[in-house]
């Protein structure tokens, strides 16, 4: 019996006892999960692209220059100036122009760029944790995991602030002072869905971090769990790259 298994193993890639993709089962399944999750996000972004282009393109803003003063009734002013209309998609630079602790200044897309950099940076610390895991350097893994958690939490905080500002201006799932209703609805659904992924990623990272501190992976002999959660975390970053491209640039 034993020799039989052995001979199959040698002859056929798919005969069992071997990983044809040369990755462990868990990692392969993580890849397949990420592929299906990518389809979910793609459907949202495809819907966004379709709805965005079935409206008329934003009207070019020549009134407000970067760093210009922004009044409290900025949205009303823009409505009167004819830049926020119901049949025109609003220009993202006029909608997302707030920055925490800086009041009354037009800072187009500054905050969302900062969020992008925070997420890319937390992706880097994650991959550094994975790299340290290959060397079995426990302290380094722990350090980089903690930095990744901080990055993720900072991103979530930024998103909460952005939502608060957006809602504060009167945007709802079914209502939007900036223009077409679907603009606000898609914003909440797309960024909300992504934020939910970031949140679950942070929870997973915290679990891994605690396991690292408890020597779980030291005892197991490898840090592959860090790699698997790392894959998920990079995926979240990857999705943000496209959310950023679609929602704020296109």
């Amino acid at each position: 019996m034993a020799t039989n298994t052995l001979s199959t193993e040698n002859k056929f890639t798919w005969g069992g006892g071997k990983s044809p993709f040369s990755v462990s089962y868990g990692k392969l399944m993580m890849w397949i999960f990420l592929l299906s999750d990518a389809f979910t996000f793609s459907s949202l972004l495809i819907a966004y692209g379709f709805i965005r282009y079935s409206f008329q393109s934003p009207i070019h803003n020549e009134i407000v220059k970067p760093l210009a003063h922004v009044a409290d009734n900025f949205v009303e002013q823009m409505q009167q100036a004819g830049l926020f209309l119901q049949d025109h998609w609003p220009s993202p630079e006029l909608v997302f122009n707030h920055f925490p602790f800086v009041h009354g200044v037009h800072l187009p897309l500054f905050f969302v760029s900062l969020m992008t950099f925070i997420l890319i940076f937390s992706s880097v610390t994650m991959v550094l944790a994975v790299e340290a895991g290959h060397r079995m350097a426990k302290d380094e893994v722990a350090k980089y995991m903690l930095l990744t958690i901080i990055g993720g939490a900072a991103f979530l905080g930024c998103q909460a602030w952005e939502w608060t500002t957006f809602i504060g201006e009167g945007a709802r799932l079914y209502e939007n002072p900036y223009g077409p209703r679907s603009f606000a609805a898609l914003f909440f659904i797309v960024t909300g869905f992504h934020g939910m992924h970031v949140f679950s990623g942070v929870v997973l990272n915290v679990i891994i971090y605690l396991n690292v501190l408890n020597n779980t992976y030291e005892k197991r002999g490898h840090y592959e769990m860090v790699e698997k959660v790392g894959l998920y975390w990079h995926f979240v970053d990857l999705v943000w790259v496209f959310v950023f491209t679609f929602y704020y640039l296109i």
């Binding site: 793609s42 972004l45 495809i46 692209g49 379709f50 709805i51 965005r52 282009y53 079935s54 296109i250």
Partner: peptide, 11 residues
């Protein structure tokens, strides 16, 4: 994605 953006434009 590319197809649906073009299609949205026609819509």
């Amino acid at each position: 994605v590319a197809l649906m953006i073009i299609e949205g434009d026609f819509t």
